[in-house]
Design a protein around this nucleic acid. Sequence first.
DNA 1: TTGGCTGCAAATATTTTGCACTGGC
DNA 2: GCCAGTGCAAAATATTTGCAGCCAA
Lengths: 147, 147
Amino acid sequence: MDTCISRLDYMVERLKEKGFRITPQRIAIVEILANSCDHPGVDQIYREVIKKFPTTSLATVYKTITLLKEIGEVMEMGFGDECNRYDGKNPHPHPHIMCVKCKSIADPDLSSLDEISRELNMETGYKIVSHRLDFFGVCPDCQKSSE
Amino acid sequence: MDTCISRLDYMVERLKEKGFRITPQRIAIVEILANSCDHPGVDQIYREVIKKFPTTSLATVYKTITLLKEIGEVMEMGFGDECNRYDGKNPHPHPHIMCVKCKSIADPDLSSLDEISRELNMETGYKIVSHRLDFFGVCPDCQKSSE
DNA sequence: TTGGCTGCAAATATTTTGCACTGGC
DNA sequence: GCCAGTGCAAAATATTTGCAGCCAA
C-alpha cells in the first residue's frame, strides 16, 4: 500500500502515472526534495545534483521543480527576498518557522488551521483553496551564538 | 495627538524625524501607499506616480519603498510569483486574503494570532519576531463571473 | 550652500525560453 | 525510432547600483 513506499518512490510513481519520463536527473532532484528536511532552495538542489550528474543544467532543475509543483508534489514557499525554498516532503499547506539569521526552516506543530479557513470562508464569502502561515524568528542555536 | 493626523502625514513625519528629505516624489509615493486599500505593487505605484510627476523613475519608486520598509512604515507582502505587493496602511503583521483570479487582496478580521505566536515560542524555543498568514481563494465576485 | 535625492542607464539576480541533440520508453 | 527531456545560451523579468545634475533644508 501507499504507506509502505517511500516518498521518493511515491513521487516517481506520480511522475510515471502522469506520463512523464523518468530520467536520472529527475530522480536525483526528486530524491533531494523527498529526503531533505531543510527545505532547500534551487541553487542548493542544483549544487547537490551536479555532484551526481556534473553536466546537469540549472534549467533542468527549474523545469523539474516546475513540473513537480504542477502535479502538486512540491510546494513553493515563496520567500521572495532570498531565492525560493521548496518542501517536497509535505507539499500541502502547513505552518513553517524560519530563522531570520541562519535561514533554516522547520515545521512546528500547530493545529486548528483548517478551522480558521472554514471560519474565514463563512466570514468573507471567499472560497479558500490554500493558505500559508509562516513565522519568522531566531532559532535557539542563533540565540546562543549571538550572546 | 497621533490619532488626529492622517496616515500620510504620520508617514511623512516619520521620514522627517529620521532625517530624510521630503521630496514631491516621496510625498506622492507615500500618499499612494497610505491611501490605497488594494495593496498595490511596484508598477501600480509607478503608474500612479507618473500621473503627477511624469519624469519619476522606477528606481525612485523602489528606493522610496525600500526606505519605508526600513523605517517600518510599509510591509512587503512577499508574493514572489507576481511582483511584490505592499501594505502602507497597516505595516504590521496581519492576515491577508488574496483572490487567485483577480489578485485583489483584502484584510479579513481574525484574532488570536498573537496567542499562536506565544504558544509557538514556548513550543519551539524560537524568539518570534514576525509572521505572515495569507489565505488564497476565489473572491465572491470572481465566483459569480466564472459560473 | 551642500549633500541627499532623482533619473537615466547599466548591472545584477533569478527564472524562462529556443533549439539542436540525446536517451527513456 | 519517436518524441520528451536535456543542456547550453540567450531572453525575459524584477530589482539594484553608479553617477551626474538638481533641489530640499
